[in-house]
Simulated assay, not measured.
Amino acid sequence: MTFWKTALCAGAFGVATLAQAQPAPAAVTVYSSRIENLLKPTLDQYTQQTGVKINLLTDRGGSLSERLAAEGKSSPADVLITVDMGNLHNAAERGLLRRIESPMLNANVPANFRDPQGRWYGLSQRERTIFYAPGRVQPGQLSTYEDLADPKWKGKLCLRTGKQTYTQSLVAMMIAKHGVPKAEAIAKGWVANLAGDVFTNDNSLLKAIAAGQCDVGIANTYYYGRILSREPDFGNSVKLFWANPGANQGGAHVNLSGAGVTANAKNPEGARKLLEWLSSEGVQTAYTHGTFESPINTKAKADPIVQAWGKFTPSPLNAADIGSHQAEAIRLLDRVGYR
């Protein structure tokens, strides 16, 4: 009995020792241009669930791409998370992202919100639409982005600077939809209708509509959501209108935050698994609640503030196609004097 007890104890001890000796899952290094305090809690949850450590470095999207390019094969980054379809497209075209095969990502992310070559995938939607002052503009007067170039809006339009990627992507969408000549005419009309100087951020633009500096403007919905979360009555002064309603009008412009596995990833398998997890239904709800973006996964529930804006028709244009016109859009904006 003593022998068998000793043997069993030794065997149990050996199993425990082997279990303790198992290597920890390889860490995943993430370069991200998203605000750290919005992203880190989600990544911490992934670590708690999987045991995978996440090394996070945050900076501006353009700076991160330049860093990846400069680091080359010595880069520690496994994942690039950035905002704007132009940044995603440019990173892919520069060879900074690799193609990955993932049936799960293909199922979770609609085809028009991912790269056709599998180099990047959208993780949240950032709709850019029309906002107006209800006391001075009626919803029936509004229709499309294109209509805001009409002289009837002269001196009434607020816009964000053309130096910002969100403006550039909207114009890139116009180029993809209409071609350069018509897109240029639209942008020229916008400039002619400006109520004053362009704004450096959408928050100031929305506040300007409320203050009566202009009657109508174009902004990202999540800025509106942020204001409403702090000032619920702001919705009485500024309201949202879904641009280009219906498929015949082309639908509202949807920008993205998204991610890809880096070309020189040391842990590409771990990177792919992280992206799959981020695109899953339950995580998408957490990823977008409080940011006032819309989930990329259509099964996930949006934040209640976002849900209150109602359903809309998104543009069916592929995000990669829009991103490919970004450089052309910048040149167009310069030509029409959109500063």
Rank of each mutant, 00 (worst) to 15 (best):
T6L: 15
A7E: 09
A7R: 12
L8C: 07
A10S: 12
F13G: 15
L18Y: 14
Q20F: 08
Q20K: 13
Q20H: 07
A21F: 11
A21R: 14
V28Y: 00
V30H: 03
V30P: 02
Y31C: 01
Y31K: 00
S33V: 01
E36S: 03
L38V: 07
K40T: 11
T42K: 04
Q45K: 13
Y46H: 01
Y46Q: 00
Q48C: 02
V52R: 01
K53F: 03
N55Y: 01
N55H: 13
D59E: 12
D59Q: 12
R60L: 11
R60Y: 11
G61M: 01
S63V: 10
L64V: 11
E66A: 06
A69K: 03
E71K: 07
K73G: 10
S74I: 05
A77V: 12
V79C: 00
L80Q: 04
D84Q: 07
G86C: 06
H89M: 03
A91C: 09
A92R: 13
E93K: 12
P103D: 06
M104D: 08
A107K: 13
N108L: 13
V109Y: 11
P110S: 01
R114E: 12
R119D: 00
Y121E: 04
L123Q: 03
R126T: 07
I130T: 10
Y132P: 05
Y132H: 08
V137S: 15
Q141N: 10
L142M: 06
E146A: 12
W153N: 01
K154D: 10
L159W: 05
L159N: 10
T165K: 05
L170Q: 04
M173L: 13
M174W: 13
A176M: 05
A176W: 02
V180H: 08
V180T: 09
K182C: 05
K188L: 01
V191R: 10
G196F: 09
D197W: 02
V198D: 01
T200Y: 15
T200D: 15
N201R: 06
D202L: 01
N203K: 03
S204W: 03
L205C: 09
A208I: 10
I209T: 10
G212H: 11
Q213K: 15
D215F: 01
V216C: 11
I218S: 03
N220D: 11
E231A: 00
P232Y: 13
D233Q: 07
K239L: 04
L240Q: 02
F241P: 15
W242I: 09
W242M: 08
A243P: 14
Q249L: 13
Q249Y: 10
Q249A: 08
N255G: 06
S257G: 14
V261A: 05
V261I: 02
A265Y: 02
K266T: 05
N267E: 03
P268Q: 02
L274K: 00
W277D: 07
W277R: 06
E281D: 02
Q284P: 06
H289D: 10
G290E: 15
I296T: 12
T298Y: 14
T298S: 15
K301R: 11
Q307D: 12
T313N: 04
T313Y: 04
P316A: 08
D321E: 06
H325T: 09
A329G: 08
A329E: 10
L332Y: 03
L332C: 09
L333S: 14
D334R: 05
R335I: 06
G337N: 08
G337D: 11
Y338Q: 04
